[in-house]
Structure formats: structure tokens, C-alpha cells
Design a protein around this nucleic acid. Sequence first.
DNA 1: TTTTAACTGGACAAGCATGTCTTTTTATGA
DNA 2: TCATAAAAAGACATGCTTGTCCAGTTAAAA
Lengths: 154, 154
Amino acid sequence: MVVLSNSTGYAIRALACLSGLGCEPKFVRDIAKCSGVPAPYLAKLVQRLAEAGIVNSKRGYRGGIILARKPDEISLLEIDEAVEGGAHPDRCLLGMDDCSDARACPTHAFWKKTRADIRKTLLDTTLADVLAFETKKQAATGSRSKKPSTKKPL
Amino acid sequence: MVVLSNSTGYAIRALACLSGLGCEPKFVRDIAKCSGVPAPYLAKLVQRLAEAGIVNSKRGYRGGIILARKPDEISLLEIDEAVEGGAHPDRCLLGMDDCSDARACPTHAFWKKTRADIRKTLLDTTLADVLAFETKKQAATGSRSKKPSTKKPL
DNA sequence: TTTTAACTGGACAAGCATGTCTTTTTATGA
DNA sequence: TCATAAAAAGACATGCTTGTCCAGTTAAAA
């Protein structure tokens, strides 16, 4: 039951630390300490995030990592695809490789809809939302992103 | 985006072959050929399925594997838990380990509901449904299991 | 009782995601 | 220009899932 990989989880938490504040670049090692992600591994993830245009990295003296856009303009879906190197292929829930709309396995319709729901949720949820979660330590009626939202109390 | 492991997919397809017909035990190697699962690996999976009471295995001359119950009495959820060795823990979609009902991450409510939906679908879908899928090669308004169903055309 | 045919169980190998280490490259400030 | 500080890059290590192999055990039939 794994939807987002460990690596994607790392990236999301690391970016949440990074979006905390300031226009000053942060070092990989500081983000690592703040997020709990192993520093050398985080360095790899940051490279992929930089390639995808989610962060900007600067080498040399006074270098570091900085968000390329505002937190509410970076969706979790984008982070996932940056880390995984592309969109998830639409795998059959049961792993049948001859399952398709034309030849639907018993869970095909259900899974097709669920997959789309998950995708939409990840698209609608931004770093700003995650930041709010990280910041508020208990109570608070948190600030949400500007995007339409599927994350009401429900 | 992996919900059921490769191994669980193997087990489901293998059991579908097994439920085809007859009260005669089938050999692991025949199930392997029919389902495309590597025979030595299938032998391991069969052991777990036997421990879980899904199949009965018989050693020695004229031994083999046989379903312990009728196909429509074996849910995919049961197969999954037999293969995985227990129920899936309720992991946070984003991998936050301090995410809970009391301290909900931005996707918590969504994922809680979706998880339950997936579980229900796997519980309501039985080997009989999979068998119908395997049997009908193209058209047919297939026979379903006796259970209530979330798998309408939609 | 012996032979044969099947599952059982344990050790082992391969592949992939995860994690680490070291060297190289780049940019800043003195 | 030179020293320094940081990311980039690539080789290397680890762990888990998947997959293989082989000797052991069991049961039926001759």
C-alpha cells in the first residue's frame, strides 16, 4: 500500500523546511537536519528538484538551495513527478497487464476513479498546505492555499 | 503508486488458474505454467496461502494444491493479507509519522477515506470475479459474485 | 518395502530503492 | 589570483523484495 515513495516523502518534508522563511539560500546539511532526511541522500533529491525547476541551487561560497517559486505554487504532484522522474504509469490494481477499458478486471473502474482522485488531491495540495501542518503544532484554524480544496474536515 | 505487491498479484492470478475447475489437486508447476508465475517462487507463495487456509496442499505421490473454499468465498483482501503476512498498516499518504486524526496532514481525511474504499473493494471482490475476467476473453456480461459490489460500469 | 512424485524448508543470488563517501566543479570574498 | 565554501557527480554500500536451487520429508502405488 505504497502510493508515494519514501524518497518523495523526504522531498516533501525537506521542501517544507525550505519554504519556512527567508530569501537566503539554505544549505543541504541544514535542510537535512531540519527535516531528518540523511544529508547525502537529500543532496541527490535536491538535484532532481533543481532539474525540475522546483528549487534553484547555487554552488560555491555563499551557495545553497532556495525555492524557485512560492510554496502555494508547488503541488505535491509536481514534487512526486520530479523525484520519480515522470508520471506514474497507470498500473492495474491487481497487476494484470492485459487489463484495460476494453477488457476490465474486476477492480478496473474503481481503481481508475481512485487513481484520478489521488492525482487530483496531490495536484490541489501544495507546499503551503504542508507548511501549515508543520507550523501549527496543535490547534489553529490554519491558512490554506488559494487553490480549490478537497481537504475539508469531511 | 503500488497498492498490491507483485507477489500478491502473482497469488491472485495463480489462484484464478487453480479455481478453474475440478476437485483434483493441481501441481505447483502446472499452476506456474498456467499463471506465468516462476514455479519455485510460486511454491513459496503457496505455502503462505496454505498457512492462511486459502488452499490445501498435499504432499507425496498424487499430491498437489487445491482451493480450501469456493472461489466466491475467497476475497482478494484475504489473499493479500495471507501473502503480506498481515493487514497493511495505516500509513500517512505523505509519510509523516506524526500524522493522525488529532494532527491531520493536508491529505489525511482524503487518504483515510480512500484507504477504506480500497479495502472494501478488495474485500468485496472475490476469486470468482477474477475467474470471470480470466475466462471471458472479450465480450460477455459476466457473472459476478454474490457479494454487494462496488464494481459497476461507473 | 521400495520407488516415485510431490510439497517443504533453508540457503543463496539478483535487482532495485535507499543510503554513504569522495572527488570535482563552481562561485565568492579577500 | 588564491583560499574557502558550497553543490555536483559518480562510485560504492546496504537492505528488502523477488527469484532460484537443492536436499529433506511425506505419501501413494506397485
